[in-house]
Write a protein that binds this DNA or RNA. Structure first.
Length: 454
DNA sequence: TTTTGAGTTGTTCGA
DNA sequence: GTCGAACAACTCAAA
C-alpha cells in the first residue's frame, strides 16, 4: 500500500509555486487536499463578509483546478484540532503538509494540530510559501530580529530566493470521503450563504487564474514602471491591486517578485512594498503581543477615545467633513478595498485628529478589507498612529487638506466616492490646526513621562 | 564595549 | 511660489 499525505490548504489557495504541494507530491504516493472551514474564519475576532466571500469563491476555483488534474478537494467544517487527526485516520495518512502560518491565531491552531497528530504518530510538516523569506532567515548579525525597516530590507535583499515552482499537470486520485457526496457540501453551503458587505462587482475576481491574469497585466504595465511616483495617486490606477491575492495565497510573493523585479525605480519600489509585507509578518512572529499592544508600550497610556465615541461612527461612515478621509472610508465600505494612501490618511485622522485608539480602526479595517491581513494591517495602524517600530516623529500629523491637493489633484477620487457635494460635504468634525496641537500634546505627555509614571 | 549615524510614506514656518 | 530647517528625544544597527 502506498503512503498518503494530507495537503492542508489555509492561506495558500493555489497550485502554482506552492512548496507545500510540491513537498506532499514528492513525499507520498497519494495526496489528499483538504480545507477546513474554521469557525474562527467565519465568526472569529474579525469576521468579514468580504473576506469570507472571496475565500469561498477562491476555494471553489481551487477545487475545480484540482479536479482538472485528477484530484479532489475535501472541505470540512469545524475545529482543525479535531478534524485533521480524524481525517488522517480515515485516509491512513502518515503526514499533514502545510504552508507555514505566522500570525498568533494560526500559530496557536497549528501547535494544537501538530501535537494531536504527533500523538498518533502522524507528522506535521511546515513548508514556506506565504512569505518571501522566513523569520529565522532575516536576523541581525548580533542576533535578534530587526525593528527598523531599512536594515531589515538590506538583509532581506541580500538573501537568495527559492526557485519558483510550476503547478503540477496531474495529481494522484485521492480516496478521502469518496462516495459520500460530502466532500464539497460544506463549501456549497458557504457559497450559497455568503454575501459580501461591499458591492460584489467592485471586488476583484476570486481564484488563482484571475489572480495570475492580474499579475500578468501588472508585470507588463506602465503603472509598474511609474510605481515609484504613481503609487501615491488616489485618482489613478497606479497600484497593483494584488493585495487580496497575496492575502489568500492565490499568488506566492516569491513568484510576484520574480515576475516584477528588475531595473528601474518603479520595480525597485514595488519590491520594497513586498518586503514591508515580510517585515510586518516577521515582527508579529517575533513579538506576538503586538497584536494587542503598542510597540511603544508607553503610548498605550495615552487617553485614547474609545470605540463608542460618536466621532468613531462619523469616521466609519465617512462623515468627518474632510472629503479625502470620507472618500477613503466610503471606498472601504463600498468596495472592500482602499488605496494605500487613503488607508494612511484615514488612519492618521482617526488616531491623531480624533484621538481614537488605533485598535478601534484596526478592527474596523479588518471587518471590511478583502485583503485584511493581521500582520500588515496591525503594522500599518501602528505606523499611522506612531505607536509602532518606525521611530517617526509623533508631530507628523497628516494634513487632510494638503494630502487631498497633493494626491487627488484632479478631484476624481473624491468625486468617485462622494458624488453629491450637498449631502456628502458636512462641516468638518474638528479643526485641523487645533486637532493637530492636541494630538501632539497628547503624545508629548506620554513620551515625556515614559511607561512607568502617571 | 563604545560610539556614531540613521530612522518609508510629513507639516509648518520663515526666508 | 520654492526651499531648507525645525520639530524631541530615543532606539536601533553597525562600525
Amino acid at each position: 500500500m502506498g503512503s498518503t499525505a494530507i495537503l492542508w490548504f489555509r492561506r495558500d489557495l493555489r497550485l502554482g509555486d506552492n512548496p507545500a504541494l510540491a513537498h506532499a507530491l514528492a513525499s507520498a504516493d497519494t495526496v489528499e487536499p483538504v480545507f477546513v472551514l474554521d469557525d474562527n474564519l467565519l465568526h472569529g475576532r474579525w469576521p468579514s463578509p468580504n473576506r469570507v466571500w472571496f475565500m469561498a469563491r477562491s476555494l471553489h476555483a481551487l477545487a475545480a483546478d484540482l479536479a482538472a488534474r485528477g484530484s479532489r478537494l475535501t472541505v470540512l467544517r469545524g475545529r482543525p484540532g479535531e478534524l485533521l487527526p480524524q481525517f488522517a485516520a480515515e485516509v491512513a495518512a502518515s503526514s499533514v503538509v502545510v504552508s507555514r502560518d505566522y500570525a498568533p491565531y494560526g500559530r496557536r491552531r497549528d501547535l494544537v494540530v501538530a501535537e494531536r497528530l504527533q500523538e498518533r504518530g502522524i507528522a506535521f510538516e511546515r513548508q514556506p510559501g506565504v512569505l518571501v523569506h522566513e523569520p529565522e532567515e532575516v536576523l541581525r548579525a548580533e542576533g535578534g530580529h530587526f525593528k527598523v525597516f531599512s536594515p531589515f530590507q538590506r538583509a532581506w535583499q541580500a538573501l537568495d530566493r527559492r526557485p519558483v515552482l510550476a503547478a503540477p499537470e496531474r495529481m494522484p486520485a485521492p480516496v478521502g470521503r469518496q462516495g459520500r457526496g460530502s466532500a464539497r457540501a460544506a463549501l456549497d453551503d458557504l457559497l450559497r450563504a455568503s454575501r459580501p458587505s461591499a458591492d460584489e462587482r467592485l471586488i476583484p475576481v476570486p481564484g488563482e487564474a484571475a489572480a495570475r491574469a492580474r499579475l500578468d497585466d501588472w508585470a507588463e504595465s506602465d503603472a509598474l514602471k511609474q510605481y515609484d511616483g504613481g503609487r501615491d495617486r488616489l485618482d489613478r490606477a497606479g497600484t497593483s491591486r494584488l493585495s487580496q491575492d497575496l492575502r489568500w495565497g492565490l499568488l506566492s510573493p516569491v513568484e510576484v517578485l520574480e515576475r516584477t523585479s528588475g531595473a528601474g525605480n518603479g520595480r525597485q519600489r514595488f519590491a520594497s512594498e513586498i518586503c514591508w509585507r515580510d517585515f510586518y509578518a516577521h515582527l508579529l512572529w517575533h513579538q506576538a503581543e503586538l497584536a494587542t499592544k503598542s510597540f511603544r508600550r508607553e503610548l498605550d497610556d495615552v487617553a485614547w477615545r474609545r470605540a463608542d465615541d460618536p466621532a468613531v461612527d462619523a469616521w466609519r461612515e465617512g462623515r468627518t467633513g474632510y472629503p479625502v478621509v470620507d472618500a477613503a472610508m466610503r471606498q472601504l465600505r463600498e468596495s472592500g478595498w482602499v488605496h494605500n494612501r487613503g488607508r494612511m490618511i484615514a488612519a492618521s485622522f482617526l488616531t491623531k485628529h480624533l484621538g481614537v485608539d488605533w485598535r478601534v480602526g484596526e478592527a474596523h479595517f479588518m471587518s471590511h478589507l478583502t485583503d485584511g491581513d493581521p500582520a500588515s494591517n496591525n503594522g500599518g495602524w501602528q505606523w499611522a498612529s506612531s505607536t509602532g517600530t518606525d521611530p517617526q516623529p509623533y508631530f507628523r500629523v497628516f494634513n487632510p487638506t494638503l494630502q487631498r491637493e497633493r494626491y487627488d489633484p484632479s478631484g476624481d477620487y473624491v468625486r468617485r466616492w462622494l458624488p453629491d457635494p450637498e449631502a456628502d460635504f458636512p462641516p468638518p468634525l474638528v479643526d485641523h490646526a487645533e486637532a493637530r496641537r492636541e494630538a501632539i500634546a497628547r503624545y508629548e505627555q506620554r513620551s515625556r513621562t515614559g511607561p512607568h509614571r502617571g
